[in-house]
Amino acid sequence: MFTIDLLKGQAIPLDNKSGGLAIMAVTAIVPIVAAIGMFSFYSKIEAAVSAKEKEIAGCEAEIAKLSDALERQNAMEQEKANYGKCLSEVKSSIKKYTQWSPVLATLMENIPDSVVLTSLGIENDSVKRKVPKPDDPKIKVEISVGVRTLQLSVSGGPQSNCQEAVKDFMDRLESSAVLGPRLEKITPSRKDEIVDGQEVISYEISCVFKPGL
């Protein structure tokens, strides 16, 4: 049987068998190509995610280092503050501290030979003083200021002219370079007593230091 193609093949349908094979081939290739494309796409995403995870891990490591450094810095700042507080307290204590060695040396150098030093002691007290407020000098505030008193006891016999000796002793202390500038006042008090049948004259001498010294 002969087929006459007047339309030159434009209207002749494909052979059913050949057309089916072509459709099957296209149907099989499209999912494969799509799968390859999706695999490539997901591979790129996975690589990008992995890179980001590494970057995040690096950032977390740096943050941990900075956190440790910040903690050390805070600890050092706290330690510095504690040291500063201790130094301030030491400075305050040193300021209030009086070296008594020069004072004792002055007493021994100036006490008359006719009297004997029988006792020596220190009394601490405080007085209220009004001083300018640090942040506003126009305002006066009341504070407590330490006052120290050096208590001396001296004794002498009736023939020693104890009264004159004590007066001379007090004058020497007031004019001494060590005690003179520090003293607020010196006051004596007399006490007569009999010891072993003999009259003994005793004097209590109070050397009051200026407040804060």
Rank of each mutant, 00 (worst) to 15 (best):
M1D: 14
F2R: 03
T3C: 06
P13F: 13
N16A: 14
K17W: 09
K17A: 06
S18I: 14
S18D: 11
G20M: 03
E46R: 11
A47E: 05
K52M: 14
E53I: 09
E55W: 00
E55R: 04
A64I: 02
R72P: 07
E79W: 08
E79R: 13
K80G: 07
N82I: 08
E89A: 14
V90W: 10
K91E: 11
K91L: 12
S92P: 13
S93Y: 14
I94F: 15
K96M: 15
L104Q: 06
N110G: 03
I111M: 00
S114L: 07
V115M: 00
V116K: 04
V116M: 01
G121H: 07
I122P: 04
I122H: 11
N124H: 09
V127W: 05
P134Q: 04
D135R: 06
D135S: 07
K140D: 01
G146I: 01
T149A: 01
Q151D: 14
G157R: 00
S160H: 08
C162G: 02
Q163T: 13
Q163A: 14
A177V: 13
V178H: 01
L179E: 00
G180L: 03
K185D: 08
I186M: 13
T187L: 06
P188R: 08
S189E: 06
G197P: 05
I201Y: 02
Y203N: 01
I205D: 03
C207M: 00
